[in-house]
Simulated assay, not measured.
Amino acid sequence: MSAPRRPDAGSPQDGPAHAPTRVFVDHRELLFSVVYNMLGSVADTEDVLQETWLSWSGKNRRAPLAEIGNPRAYLVRVAVNHALARQTAIASRRETYVGPWLPEPLVTDATTGLAPDTADHTVRSDSVSLAMLVVLETLTPLERAVFVLHEVFGYAHTEIAGMLDRSPAAVRQVAHRARAHVQARRPRYRARPRVRREATERFVAAALGGDLQALLEILAPDVTVWIDGGGARQAAGLRPVQGREKAARMLAGYASRRAGDLDVHYRSVNGDDAAVLFSDDSPYAVMVMDLTPDGDQVCGVYVVTNPAKLTRVRPDADEVGTAQ
């Protein structure tokens, strides 16, 4: 049985016997957001939600729903623990992954303002930026779970302790360690939306236009470029490129091979302005830029070209500009 989504009004799932289904559907978006921020993969998130649904439906076959005092807390606890258990398989997969690994981007549709998952359009307002997800990859699975639950979703340490079967004191220590680790790698700042959009458009024009001088001006001296092709794109590098000169030359050369065939759609990706590149209406790449605190330069470039991570990306006629 697949994990349920939103039942249509008037369906058989409106009956009392389907109360557990309605409870799960009501909390599905929260569960998706929590698990996605822990794993960075939509496919793995959907698998975890399926496992959570099976645990939930099995629990309700054995005991009435009324015996579960706080269904929301129960479902989050089950989902988080399934996500932690899945980390072993994910780590094993990463060992054989070709080149840099980046999270699967959540691309917002320009018309609806929503981000698609495997079957329907759903709001992903609680997803953190792609750059932050990359930083979270450097945490241990436990540190990441605690950070996501506390810093992103606002759960108290005592609540997290109950979810993870640890003492509140132990959770506070993990939270302190995770927060210090993240803040050391990603200071808290966020450029204004207009500044982000202008910087994104300047960068894309320079990169796809092969304008080396413009790239040297907009890239920060210590910029890092990640290109995740998963071994499916020949032009993707096997490791991140650091430094303005190397990055500019690599980006200019990378774009010159395909720029004339690409259409640019400006979208929101994980809440940030970004560019989605299409070739003959098929998604070719998602480009997300991380800005310096003043918003004047690009300090990080995240390019996802792995086709397996772009299967949910769709073109939108309202937000298109042809690359020159």
Score class of each variant (00 low, 15 high):
T96D: 10
L65V: 11
S2A: 06
K59G: 04
W101I: 12
L219E: 07
M163L: 12
V78R: 14
V304W: 05
A156M: 11
V298L: 01
V304S: 08
G237Y: 02
R197S: 02
G99F: 03
K309H: 07
A285G: 06
T112P: 09
G10M: 02
L149G: 06
G253L: 07
A131D: 07
A3M: 09
W226L: 12
D290I: 00
V80P: 03
L106I: 04
V304K: 02
G10F: 09
R186W: 09
Q13G: 00
E217W: 01
R197A: 01
R6W: 14
L106H: 04
V303Q: 11
R5I: 04
T112D: 13
L139E: 11
E104V: 05
L277I: 08
G154N: 04
L310K: 04
S41G: 01
T21I: 12
V195T: 13
I90F: 04
V76W: 01
G210A: 07
P103Y: 09
D228I: 10
V264S: 05
T108Q: 07
D294A: 12
D47H: 14
T96W: 04
F24V: 04
E104P: 02
R179C: 03
D8E: 14
N306P: 06
R258Y: 05
M287S: 08
D117G: 11
S282F: 03
G113C: 09
P71W: 13
I68F: 12
L65W: 01
G58P: 05
A19S: 10
M1H: 06
Q213T: 09
A232R: 14
I68G: 08
A214S: 14
S256A: 15
L75K: 11
M250L: 15
E143Q: 15
A207G: 03
I160N: 13
A89F: 03
T158W: 02
G209Y: 02
D165P: 00
T108Y: 00
T96H: 10
P307E: 10
A206V: 01
